[in-house]
Design a protein around this nucleic acid. Structure first.
Lengths: 198, 198, 198, 198
DNA sequence: GATGAATGAGCTTTCATTCAT
DNA sequence: AATGAATGAAAGCTCATTCAT
């Protein structure tokens, strides 16, 4: 009877790698570092992920699916578009506080190391679960007449750029207050920027 | 009689390094790569910058000053806050098109490699010329009654996160139209988000 | 009730290993490669051969016995020495075409990797079944007055070096014609070289 | 004033590598082994040869040119074809005794590790200086009416296979007498095999 | 016998940095 | 100031072999 299944082992690597990559950076984190953190030999690591790059790509997919799931749940709720914006912002900030490694990985590893994700993650392939849900959110809002019908990417850039910017400032510890306290004003800012214009 | 002054030599390195770091990434670019691009020996490189990290820090300061200068010129203009927003967005996008290495360095190298900039660039030290001007812009807008008086960082996060997000999408070549075409809608979005609320 | 006997299992490994070693080389072939080709687990492989080196040594013995058997059959025939030469050359070339892995293993693995066969295969220990038959062939020819009585190894070197050289050229695909077409001229050359001199 | 030129350094590596590869085998010899033998750091080794494979290829070219030069000198002599055969055999055996690493490298490293020489040394590219001279020798002999006009490769396979076989037996220390003692009989055998037939 | 996850030493290669010239 | 050969630590990755099940 195996104490630890292969899938659990893989999950253990994912958790450890996510933490190390987001804290120290992709290049500064070594495979021995990760293996040690999981309590596994270097050689065995390669039974689960065939290269460091492959691991990096699986990680971003993992995060993208996690984010996508959360947004889908919000999309499915029967609430106003303005409330959805608030819910997404809240979820994102909660994640940044509780599972900072995910958002940090997204911002600092994925967005910045083209050379790592170039092959196999071109365009938005590896983040499509997440982007797709954002598209749905936006299209719904436009359909309901709540959002101004503009180019999706402009809206997307605003939304994610804004949140990313704030989390970045938070990570740098230069925000004077906890992230939570910004939820309302930021949601309001986003809504003001995207809402139907008269 | 030196044909090329020390300062010019240094500038040559800055230009070359900026390009390589932003195109290939900090860790993938080697000192020999940079030296070769400048047409200089590896050993001589170290007469100008005592380490790779020092070079990286001087680069971000250089960019921050460049950006700060441009924003200051806008701040000094006698135009409305809404026009200033438009001017900053235009300037930023123009830079992203004409000197992409600067913005890319900012987004992909500086923002993502804490381990490199940690020592000596804590907080916003190395980008203060730029941040300071943004503060001035914001305070002026509030003073004039054009902008809603909120936490500076929330406004800053919106502004720079948004622009950064758009330039990132542009860099990934997933924007359906040239950056220029987004100038108006984005300026409008930002203004809507930040303007005085009634 | 085992469907497959231990001996058959072993033979399966021999066949697979022979093919892989001769095609890819000894060092490039891994135990997992071999196990997979046989359809067996890595761990189980070690129940049949206690190490990669041991396997290599058993393989050369296997080939040597196979070659020896074939030459013995020719030696036992009641034909002229010249016809025997022709028969040996034909057999060797037929093997090179039909079971190239054997000859290739002999030429490329056994002859070249002293460090592998050093311990346990010193001198000609592991190829003695084959060398012995060649000695018998030669002694018979001398006894019958057909062959010039010279040092055995000089004759052996000629015979096997020549054939090995041709098969090597064949393996490199630089022979303009099929191996078969060379049988006659080569047999003739060998006979001319070894026959009684007047 | 440099004590050691770059070319001399490169030659030092060639000499050391040749010895180690031929004695221990290509895969068993490591770059640290070679570097240590030259008295150089591992990193510096890569300033001279960009990879282990590249080194292997340069070595075979080096040997091929050496062999080719020696045969050319014989080809240019005004002696009979039979004497040329004797001269080539003598030269080859002398090399095998005095610079065994060259012949051994040829026989044990080059001829056996297709996977190493595959790319860039296809066919006979990396040994053409040597093969070309053998072609000249053979064509001259045929032109003079001394050699039987047969397929070049059959003659080449005989000549080189024979010599290779003898040197191999010598290397295995199973020849009862020194190589030298075989010169005459082997030259005679080769001549008998290749000479014009009546 | 059979499995395959696990080990860990060791390999090739890279690169920031130094230093004799 | 300038050169570039030299260093050496460390990285990613492989693989023969073991062993708990």
């Amino acid at each position: 009877m195996a104490r630890v299944t292969k899938q659990e082992r893989k999950q253990g690597i994912i958790t450890a790698a996510l933490q190390l990559f987001s804290e120290r950076g992709f290049y500064v984190t070594t495979i021995p570092d990760i293996a040690q953190k999981v309590g596994m030999s270097v050689g065995n690591f390669y039974n689960y992920f065939t290269s460091k790059d492959i691991l990096a790509k699986e990680l971003i997919l993992y995060i993208s699916e996690y984010l996508g799931d959360n947004i889908r749940q919000i999309n499915e709720k029967d609430i106003s578009t303005q409330e959805k914006i608030h819910a997404i912002v809240s979820m994102y900030f909660a994640m940044a506080e509780e599972k900072p490694e995910m958002i940090e990985y997204f911002l600092r590893v994925y967005l910045s190391n083209r050379e790592v994700f170039g092959d196999g993650c071109e365009g938005m392939i590896c983040v499509s679960p997440f982007v797709t849900e954002m598209m749905i959110f936006f299209d719904d809002g436009v359909a309901k007449g709540d959002l101004h019908n503009q180019d999706f990417f402009s809206a997307f850039g605003l939304f994610m750029g804004y949140l990313g910017g704030m989390v970045f400032l938070f990570g740098e510890k230069i925000l004077p207050e906890p992230l939570e306290n910004y939820k309302d004003s930021i949601s309001q800012n986003i809504y003001n920027a995207l809402k139907t214009r008269n």
